[in-house]
């Protein structure tokens, strides 16, 4: 088990290095950072001075090492556009995205899993048909369109919910939260539903398929043949066995929520990382793009690692230590 986790961690480090290399390549070769930071009329000497002070005259491996060293300390340089340290921009935007992703994940889990179980167990009920049809539409619905339709209905026509921004926020240390004010909470509703809808339907469909699959297995048939209660068969025996794939996909979904936040934040003008990134793409603001890339990669890698570790708590077969010790005896 320890070996497996160490192996996974090494793999994560490898992924981070690859991402860092891409970011670095972006940084060094896409556009000229000096040109971006200086004006047309600045003297050549100033540019050369700047080049030297940024270490851009050094050999590539040294530049890369320095880039990684700085990145580890949270230093991604200065935004070409905002002329502020990138890390400062990101810290300002980070809480907005995290709160949005958090609420969207809760929706996805607490609606998706029960709906999946229900549709698997009551396959022929009208509610199941409705949920199944709804999920098909949900899965074919682009995130931005969901957001637009929700805005059209709830903001334009009914005028009950705000269509952009976070509302009032309260600062707790450097973290600004929208959870503590009414306008902050109201502002969260439409964006989090928009962001969570796709994952909700995906998780629901996955749980349903996995449940149906597990219900066909011999050990469920055998559990029935032993006269166990339906409740125990459905949850203790069947649902628990769907958890490995469900946890995998849920982990991946939380990762993609961070990515899809870009779209939701654009639709709702939500002042988060995604909006920052899309503006950076529009302005060719390479340091911000690079930092965003490294940061989201880090989050994905951490989520994946967490999922890998969760497997051990779910599936005893992966805790292989005892199998070797007690051996196979007949």
């Amino acid at each position: 088990m320890l070996y497996f986790i160490i192996q996974r961690m090494l793999q994560s480090v490898l992924v981070m290095l690859v991402v860092a290399a891409i970011s670095f390549a972006l940084f060094s070769y896409v556009g000229d950072p000096i040109e971006a930071m200086t004006g047309e009329d600045d003297p050549i000497e100033l540019k050369q001075q700047l080049r030297a002070s940024l270490g851009l005259d050094q050999p590539i491996p040294i530049q890369f090492a320095r880039f990684v060293g700085n990145a580890v300390q949270g230093d991604f340089g200065v935004s070409y556009r905002a002329r502020q340290p990138v890390m400062q921009l990101i810290a300002e935007r980070f809480p907005a995205t995290m709160e949005l992703v958090f609420v969207a994940s809760l929706i996805a889990l607490f609606v998706g899993i029960p709906a999946g179980i229900y549709t698997a167990l009551r396959r022929d009920s009208p509610v199941s048909y409705a949920l199944q049809t709804g999920s098909l539409i949900g899965i074919s619905m682009p995130t931005f369109l969901t957001g637009i339709l929700l805005i059209l209905v709830f903001s334009v026509w009914l005028k009950v919910l705000p269509s952009f921004g976070r509302g009032e926020t309260v600062d707790i240390g450097w973290w600004s939260t929208g959870f503590l004010t009414v306008s902050g909470l109201k502002s969260l509703i439409l964006p989090s539903i928009t962001l969570g809808l796709f994952s909700t339907t995906l998780i629901m469909r996955l749980v349903r398929t996995e449940m149906l699959e597990v219900m066909r297995t011999d050990y469920i048939k055998f559990a029935r043949a032993r006269g166990l209660r339906d409740r125990s068969i459905n949850f203790r025996h069947a649902f628990k066995n769907t958890l490995v794939p469900v946890v995998t996909i849920t982990g991946m979904q939380v990762g993609s929520l961070i990515a899809f936040a870009i779209i939701t934040e654009t639709v709702f003008q939500w002042p988060g990382l995604g909006l920052l990134f899309i503006q950076a793409v529009g302005n060719v603001d390479i340091p911000v793009m690079a930092a965003y890339l490294v940061l989201t990669a880090l989050m994905f890698v951490v989520i994946n690692l967490a999922v890998d570790i969760l497997y051990f708590f779910i599936d005893p077969r992966l805790r292989a230590d005892r199998a070797v010790a007690s051996g196979a005896t007949t």
Partner: peptide
């Protein structure tokens, strides 16, 4: 490694880089 990231992010990044060039 690519599967670790949602396709839309890869496409967005690719698009950003190429437009930057």
């Amino acid at each position: 490694i690519q599967l670790t990231f949602p396709a839309i992010l890869i496409a967005l990044l690719f698009d950003g880089v190429v437009s930057a060039i």
